[in-house]
Amino acid sequence: MPFEKVNSKVVRVPVTAQSPVLARRGAMLGYTGQVAFRPIHGQGQGVGGMIGTAMAGESNPMMATEGTGSVLYGFRGLHVTVIELTGDSLTVEADRLLAHDANLQTSVEFIGQGGIRSAVRGAMTGQGLFTTRISGQGSVALLSHGGTFPLQLTGETVGVDPQAYVGHTGALNVDLKASVGLRDIVGRGSGEAFQLHVSGHGTVYVQASEEKF
């Protein structure tokens, strides 16, 4: 079911018996029709998923929206970006998820798989060592401070501020680059000591702010 943006901060989601929706708990603003909200744990992946999310600290409380009707979602006045997935996958941090089709598969991914450098990336940038990967066919609504803009990549490399990075789709390689010099140690750095270097084919979503939530 397509998500429809009411304005830049609110999204309207149609819910049917065949297509329930998972949303951030407490993000419902209003609804029409016969709709019920049920808290879920572990992002619906059973015990394994629960342990995974608990370990990962990616434990964003979610709720399932079931029934027939249409629901309005919004959260703290943050901007909403709707991304349509057509069989590809989106990598994003769990606390940026506002709502997504329940038919999409979510999994918690250990970014330390990319070796010690990726693990260091999570620790240094405060992003945690885990991200959420969403794949399948359907819509995802993401939260950002100030809205996101997409950067299309066709083989080149872009640098992204770790605080401004929202998520990415496609076959992309994300690597942390630290250029900490003497200037940073004595407090005269440019404020861009840590950068994410993203390369490959896909789309990176960047927000117009360095605020995390």
């Binding site: 640098g159 404020g191 117009a208």
Partner: peptide, 29 residues
């Protein structure tokens, strides 16, 4: 709107520290 695009061609500009959110090409800060 909320993002400034700065196109550099081998030259330089001054910006508020820490305000870079992304870049393409080869840029030093």
């Amino acid at each position: 709107k909320k993002v400034l695009h700065a196109d550099l061609e081998g030259d330089s500009l001054r910006a508020a520290s820490g305000s870079m959110v992304a870049y393409t090409g080869k840029v030093e800060f």
